[in-house]
Amino acid sequence: MTFKFKHFTELSTSELYDILQLRAEIFVVEQDCVYNDLDGLDKDAVHQFLEKDGEIVAYSRLLKPGTRFNHYSIGRVVVKETKRGTGLGIRMMEEAKTYILNNWKPGKIKISAQKYLRKFYEDLGFKVVTDEYLEDGIPHYGMLFENKAD
C-alpha cells in the first residue's frame, strides 16, 4: 500500500468525492461536528491519501506557509474507523512529514491537534505550543514539529 500525494488540480473527480466523503464521515458524522469543511484551502493543498480495495481509508491535507499558518502544516488528518489501531495513522503522518521535508524543505510544521490525540502527535515529534483552545467546539492544541536538521 502506497500513499499518493496529489495537488488539487491532479485529483480525479472520483478521488475528490471520496476524500470529501471520508472527511464528512469522520468529522461531521462520527465526531458530530457541524462546520464548514470546504474552507477554500483544498485548492492550494497537496492531498495525501491511501486507497485500499477501491476506497480511500486514510487522508491528510498538506499546506504551505501563509495558507493556514505561518509554517507548513498537515491537517484534516483522518483514518477510516475500521483501519484505526493498525499503525496507519503513524505511517501517514511520517510520510507527510517526509514529503514536506523532501519537497518543500521547511524547518517547522504546525498542526491543530484535537486534545485527545496529543500523545499521538507528541510521539511523532510534535510539541504543544499553545494553550488548549476550542476549534469547531472541539478542544485542540497548536503543535509544532521542528526539523532537527535545521
Results as ranks from 00 to 15, higher is better:
78 V>C: 14
10 E>Y: 05
14 S>W: 01
52 K>M: 14
39 D>T: 06
128 V>L: 03
7 H>C: 03
149 A>L: 13
47 H>C: 01
24 A>K: 02
114 Q>V: 11
124 L>P: 05
70 N>G: 05
54 G>N: 05
4 K>V: 13
22 L>T: 07
83 K>Q: 15
74 I>M: 03
68 R>H: 09
58 A>T: 11
81 E>D: 11
44 D>F: 06
70 N>M: 13
8 F>R: 12
119 K>I: 05
53 D>M: 11
21 Q>P: 00
103 N>I: 02
29 V>Q: 00
82 T>D: 14
3 F>P: 10
72 Y>V: 10
123 D>W: 03
5 F>Y: 13
73 S>T: 07
18 D>Y: 06
135 E>P: 03
145 F>M: 01
6 K>S: 07
132 E>K: 06
64 K>C: 08
16 L>V: 08
42 D>Y: 13
118 R>V: 04
123 D>S: 15
126 F>A: 05
119 K>W: 02
36 N>M: 13
69 F>K: 13
75 G>N: 04
18 D>P: 11
87 G>E: 05
118 R>Y: 01
43 K>M: 06
133 Y>L: 14
27 F>C: 07
134 L>R: 02
93 M>S: 02
104 W>N: 12
58 A>I: 04
56 I>Y: 01
56 I>L: 05
59 Y>Q: 15
44 D>I: 08
61 R>I: 09
111 I>W: 02
109 I>C: 07
148 K>H: 12
3 F>H: 07
12 S>D: 04
17 Y>D: 02
91 R>E: 14
49 F>A: 04
111 I>N: 11
3 F>T: 06
75 G>I: 00
128 V>M: 01
92 M>V: 06
145 F>S: 04
119 K>G: 09
133 Y>F: 15
23 R>L: 09
87 G>M: 01
20 L>D: 12
68 R>I: 02
141 Y>L: 09
56 I>D: 00
109 I>D: 12
39 D>P: 08
52 K>V: 13
97 K>L: 00
50 L>C: 10
137 G>H: 13
104 W>F: 15
53 D>W: 00
72 Y>N: 06
105 K>R: 08
35 Y>M: 08
2 T>S: 13
81 E>A: 12
64 K>M: 14
129 V>D: 10
125 G>K: 10
139 P>M: 09
142 G>D: 06
2 T>E: 01
143 M>L: 04
8 F>Y: 15
14 S>P: 06
125 G>T: 04
52 K>I: 12
113 A>N: 08
85 G>D: 12
121 Y>P: 13
136 D>R: 10
23 R>N: 03
146 E>Q: 06
12 S>T: 15
98 T>D: 04
73 S>R: 12
22 L>I: 02
129 V>M: 07
124 L>D: 04
137 G>P: 08
103 N>R: 07
59 Y>A: 11
150 D>F: 09
31 Q>W: 01
52 K>R: 14
145 F>D: 09
142 G>V: 00
67 T>D: 14
23 R>C: 04
116 Y>W: 03
19 I>P: 14
112 S>E: 12
48 Q>D: 08
92 M>C: 10
32 D>I: 00
38 L>A: 11
102 N>A: 14
130 T>R: 05
44 D>K: 15
106 P>Y: 09
42 D>Q: 14
40 G>P: 15
